[in-house]
Nucleic acid binder design. Structure first.
Lengths: 203, 203
DNA sequence: TCCCGTAACTTAACACTGTAAAGCAATGGG
DNA sequence: CCCATTGCTTTACAGTGTTAAGTTACGGGA
């Protein structure tokens, strides 16, 4: 039964080709410029063929994002390995998050900044289990450890984690979406946000 | 020469009618569902008539937003009147900002969350002098006063103001765009963000 | 009073978009 | 050898923003 398997393989290959083509266009041109017809042209198939592999544009884009968001998880996990104190782990994680966003602005945009009607098809997207959710879990764990070690004031972990998220999401999204705003020097601003947030959390 | 003036008046009226129609659709259905044809249908003119009054969709939307963002300025100015100490003024201003965003989510979205290709036509939008810019100036003034009074640690005003902006923009945009995320209770979270930010800034 | 230019608006069209339905062609199993 | 399934394409629909050309009404000058 090698034939069915070869078929299966080829089908999987095309699926991956579609994702690759979509990612290439998406990364360089962004969401608005990504169209099904452009993807189709790049893989040299008809536009509707894509619909045999993905339910709709949202589903395709979701795949592209999931792929990238493993990297975000990696960045935070790396912080967990290299940081020597819980607070240092947290700090490195926050910096890693912001740098990830700035390195992959289009991904960050559709997944975190304006996901509505973009990667969430009709409101039935499963955040549970997604790579984005995993990244948030890692942040929460880091927060819990900081509380346990006494590095930051004790309190509700979820509230604290979401407060931190607000801060780092705020600066990341502002820097991505408001390129023309006269921000102060980038590194300085990022450090200010991270430092202010952490200073606001220590006992 | 009353005729030319009447004409002028009528033209201005139609212009305002277009803005009104656009706002109504926009407020209730958001950017994606706002189309020139829908606006046209509501005012009972042909779609292309709108182009005699506005350069393009961005220009029309920009008008709708400018209109709304005077309210944001008002909210911050109100904080300036009712707050008794510079820090209280700042705090009320931050809360006012967040509440404004949550009260006008669609406006906040196109103006602050994802302005690219929405209200910024082809990158030649004048942030200088816009209502949004005025609001940010008010925030900066408030920060400067807090530094002068010693309520918050002294430092670069722009950096501090932008750091604060990151925090309040972060929570506002998250709450608007991620309705399905399991956030902790709204008021609790907002207070946590504002408190943490301010605690991070006091000497 | 008549004519004509101009201003206001409409109609038609272009180049796109995402997506559904129907058609076609090849291929492997009975 | 036939036939059904699989994989893909063609066609089409209902939208989008926007431009260019066409139409109509009206006020000022001759």
């Amino acid at each position: 039964m090698g034939i069915a398997e070869r078929r299966e393989r080829e089908k999987e290959n095309l699926r991956q080709e579609i994702i690759d083509a979509a990612r290439e266009i998406f990364v360089s041109e962004g969401y608005d410029k990504l169209s099904m017809r452009k993807v189709a042209e790049r893989i040299e198939y008809s536009p509707t063929t894509i619909y045999l592999y993905f339910e709709d544009k949202s589903a395709l884009l979701r795949e592209v994002c999931e792929e990238a968001f493993y990297k975000l998880g990696d960045a935070i996990r790396k912080a967990k390995k290299t940081g020597r104190t819980p607070l240092e782990v947290l700090r490195k994680g926050l910096i890693g998050y912001i740098e990830f966003g700035l390195a992959h602005p289009h991904h960050y945009e559709v997944a975190f900044i304006s996901p509505k009607d973009k990667i969430f098809g009709e409101g039935d997207y499963e955040f549970e289990g997604s790579a984005g959710q995993q990244a948030f879990s890692l942040l929460s764990e880091s927060v819990a450890e900081c509380m346990a070690s006494g590095d930051i004031r004790k309190g509700d972990v979820a509230t604290t984690a979401q407060t931190i998220w607000a801060g780092i999401h705020g600066i990341t999204s502002l820097l991505i979406m408001h390129e023309d705003f006269p921000f102060v020097e980038r590194k300085r601003l990022i450090n200010s946000v991270v430092d202010t947030t952490i200073r606001g959390l220590v006992p």
